[in-house]
Design a protein around this nucleic acid. Structure first.
Length: 297
RNA sequence: ACGGGUAUAGUUCAACGGCAGAAUAGAGGUCUCCAAAACCUUCGAUCUUGGUUCGAAUCCAGGUACCCGUG
């Protein structure tokens, strides 16, 4: 092995059992866990994001969990920087670190790095978002087509998030986002071993349904009620929360809301698998069989 | 039982008597700073039997099913 330091990444779709495996592995190596999850980092979100329990968090030190408020922003870049810093911290005491999570983009950012992009003035970002919500997609498309023509030709032309991203870079620098994309992987000075937990879809769907029922028993509705004032935060555009806001608005019955949560969680799990399937570095393991840590000696 | 209403995709809803559409679910996919997000492709339907008409989801009649009243 070229490096003595190793990061084991436990990944997989939601409800595949990542938390338990990561804790087992971290205990085995007497090390810590970095969460790669775009929602568990928020301290206000607990039941609905299937955060590790208080006992689990106490059993093994965790990073990038409960470190942000829902009023703050997260993104892949921030995750990359934070996770690298946490990794160094862990490596000071151990040769091994464990990462666990289901946010594919964040894991990719950690492993391969994001190209450096210009800082965007928050004012510019906010103005563009306001203009978009006022003037609509047609306006946004016209702007991008007119200004960053090269990007426009190769872009997802109906995807507002991508168009806004390109436009904010253009407005900030006068340079196309394409020119910042180097498409070169950064090589880390540690080894990365990706372990995917795979569960056949029908079985995974069953686990999802059961877990959603359990979340409701644990008081998810109460958690969501308390977050109502923050419903417009990006952090709350989240399965399990959106649907219960609809219930509180009177648009869904409680049964329908729960049904929608299950449905949307299944959709989410499928999207995660679509992402992970492309990554040929992942070693897949059957998530239903007990995890054997000694295989990683 | 009687009166009234409804019947279109798995579901919720469109379609002046003139090419049956959408949302959502299902299937597949994209994705380098919102990623549990956003976006793309695709499968899929006129309850049934007759009638009117050049032409019926649409108009008429019978049947069936469901809903609402009254009993």
């Amino acid at each position: 092995m070229p490096h003595e330091k190793i990061v084991y990444i436990i990944l997989g779709p939601t409800a595949s059992g990542k938390t338990a495996v990561a804790i087992e592995l971290a205990r085995y190596f007497k090390t810590s866990i970095i969460s790669a999850d775009s929602r568990q980092c928020f301290r206000e979100l607990n039941i609905g994001v299937a955060k590790p329990t208080v006992e689990e968090l106490a059993a093994v030190p965790h990073f990038f969990i409960n470190n942000l408020s829902i009023t703050e922003e997260v993104n892949a870049r921030l995750f990359e920087e934070s996770a690298l810093a946490f990794t160094q911290k862990i490596f000071a005491k151990s040769n091994t670190a464990v990462m666990a999570g289901g946010t594919g983009l964040y894991i990719k950012a950690f492993c391969e790095g994001m190209d450096s992009m210009p800082e965007i003035d928050p004012g510019i970002r906010e103005k563009l978002r306001n203009d978009f919500s006022k003037n609509g997609i047609q306006w946004l498309q016209d702007e991008v087509q007119k200004k960053d023509t090269a990007f426009w030709k190769q872009s997802e032309q109906h995807n507002p998030q991508r168009l806004l991203r390109a436009l904010e870079i253009w407005e900030s620098t006068g340079i196309s986002i394409i020119d910042f994309q180097k498409n070169k992987k950064t090589h880390r000075d540690f080894n990365i071993i990706k372990i995917g937990l795979e569960i056949p879809m029908p079985a995974l769907y069953e686990r999802i349904n059961k877990r959603v029922d359990l979340m409701m028993q644990q008081g998810l509705l109460y958690e969501v009620e308390n977050l109502l004032p923050y419903r417009n935060c990006a952090a709350l555009q989240t399965v399990g929360y959106k649907e219960l806001f609809e219930y509180m608005d009177g648009n869904y019955s409680i049964d329908l809301a729960v049904e929608k949560i299950k449905q949307h969680t299944r959709n989410y799990a499928k999207r995660q698998m679509t992402w992970f399937k492309r990554d040929k570095d992942i070693q897949w393991q059957n998530g239903n069989t007990p995890f054997d840590c000694s295989a990683f000696l």
